[in-house]
Simulated assay, not measured.
Amino acid sequence: MSTETRATTVNRGEILKRFIVTLVCLIFFEVLTLILEVATLFQYGYLLAAKKRSEPLRRACNALSLYGYRIMRYATLNDNRRPFPFAEFPGDEDCEPPAKQVQFR
Score class of each variant (00 low, 15 high):
77 L>Q: 11
16 L>W: 11
67 Y>N: 03
103 Q>F: 10
31 V>A: 15
38 V>G: 01
102 V>C: 04
66 L>I: 04
11 N>D: 11
100 K>H: 04
81 R>A: 08
81 R>Y: 13
35 I>V: 07
15 I>E: 09
18 R>I: 13
91 G>C: 01
61 C>M: 15
37 E>P: 15
63 A>N: 10
76 T>I: 11
30 E>S: 09
1 M>Y: 12
99 A>D: 11
83 P>D: 10
58 R>A: 00
6 R>I: 13
52 K>H: 08
39 A>N: 02
71 I>D: 02
10 V>Q: 09
59 R>S: 06
102 V>W: 01
70 R>S: 04
6 R>D: 02
31 V>L: 11
100 K>C: 02
69 Y>V: 01
34 L>P: 00
52 K>P: 03
105 R>T: 12
3 T>G: 08
19 F>G: 11
20 I>W: 06
4 E>T: 15
78 N>M: 04
10 V>N: 09
46 Y>H: 11
20 I>Q: 04
84 F>N: 01
31 V>S: 12
40 T>V: 01
81 R>D: 07
72 M>P: 12
97 P>F: 09
18 R>K: 12
97 P>S: 10
92 D>R: 10
85 P>I: 00
66 L>W: 00
37 E>L: 07
102 V>I: 12
64 L>G: 07
40 T>R: 15
83 P>V: 05
31 V>I: 14
66 L>Q: 00
19 F>H: 11
12 R>D: 09
53 R>W: 08
2 S>G: 07
78 N>S: 07
101 Q>V: 08
102 V>P: 13
36 L>I: 08
40 T>W: 08
40 T>S: 13
97 P>N: 04
70 R>F: 01
60 A>F: 15
100 K>E: 06
81 R>L: 15
96 E>F: 09
30 E>W: 06
81 R>S: 09
78 N>V: 00
86 F>A: 05
51 K>V: 00
94 D>R: 05
60 A>S: 14
100 K>Y: 03
70 R>E: 10
26 L>C: 10
105 R>N: 07
52 K>I: 15
15 I>Y: 11
56 P>H: 05
19 F>Q: 12
49 A>T: 07
80 N>K: 13
32 L>D: 03
104 F>W: 11
14 E>T: 10
71 I>P: 15
97 P>A: 15
